[in-house]
């Protein structure tokens, strides 16, 4: 079994320290600034437009199984479902993973229950397990989007080549589309076919952005401080290498 080296232990302690401290401070009421993200700001507009046109909303959770990515997507899904429930709109959720289905069902039901609209739409009609095969998933969701003439299409989570199939189908149906993914290779495809694309680390910020939950917000700020440390380390390493023409000692220290 691989054991953590000393630098890794130091990094773990340092980064965990940042995150825990920021969570504690946020819990105590420290005001935290979060940079606005355009793609997330327009979620309300997308829901509103779908409601005006009386067209359903679709929220795709990507390929994620029980993982951090799934929870980030679910946090936003919870927000979208609550907003849609307020306007008595159905939210369709196609799923690629059986275990994700159980989680999504809870979030979906809670969203409608929170607005007093429990039982307004049947779970079986709105939440469908499609397939964990990418081609089948893409074909199934594309057909669903077109048949039900989806008005707002949210694509959150991890995607593979099926990203283009989903986004293109939404585009053809004239849906307002917002994609938010950490899958870097799929970002260009979302960019050319969606109204807004949120990518990379911004995806992980989405949960905190909507919930303003102290744990999520504190983690986000703590991670920013960790990134700052890494940034300083990168600049310092490159400077030292340029000045002394070697950083062997630094490399050895970090890999010790």
């Amino acid at each position: 079994m691989d054991h953590a080296t000393l630098p890794i232990i130091i990094f773990i302690l340092l980064f965990s320290g940042f995150i825990i401290t920021m969570i504690m401070l946020t819990k105590r009421g420290k005001e935290v600034f979060l940079r606005p993200i355009n793609g997330l700001k327009v979620i309300d507009d997308a829901i509103g437009r779908a409601a005006e046109e009386d067209r359903p909303i679709m929220f795709n959770l990507g390929f994620d199984d029980l993982s951090v990515n799934l929870f980030c997507s679910l946090a936003v899904m919870g927000y979208v479902v609550r907003k849609a429930a307020k306007l008595s709109m159905p939210v369709y959720v196609p799923l690629a993973q059986p275990l994700a289905y159980a989680m999504a069902e809870e979030f979906w039901k809670d969203g409608y229950a929170a607005m007093g609209k429990e039982g307004m739409f049947a779970v079986e009609d709105c939440l469908r397990y499609m397939s964990s095969n990418q081609s089948a998933l893409g074909a199934g969701i594309a057909g669903w989007i077109k048949r039900d003439h989806v008005g707002a299409n949210f694509m959150f989570g991890t995607y593979g080549f099926e990203s283009m199939m989903l986004a293109e189908a939404g585009q053809q149906a004239g849906a307002f589309q917002i994609a938010c993914t950490p899958s870097f290779y799929q970002v260009p495809f979302f960019m050319v076919s969606c109204d807004y694309t949120v990518f990379g680390e911004e995806f992980y910020a989405a949960g905190a952005y909507f919930n303003r939950d102290p744990v999520l917000t504190g983690s986000l700020v703590g991670q920013d401080y960790s990134k700052l440390v890494l940034l300083i380390l990168i600049v310092l390493g490159s400077l030292l290498l340029t000045i002394f023409q070697t950083t062997d000692y630094l490399r050895l220290l970090l890999q010790w």
Binding site: S238, L241, L254
Partner: peptide, 27 residues
């Protein structure tokens, strides 16, 4: 899942940091 991801993240991080040290004026 979280435990395994935690370990992997740090194991991948260190080589990435050291790989970013670049000499901008090689002699």
């Amino acid at each position: 899942g979280a435990g395994l991801a935690f370990k992997d993240t740090f194991n991948q991080l260190i080589p990435q940091i050291t790989g970013t040290f670049k000499n901008v004026c090689p002699t």
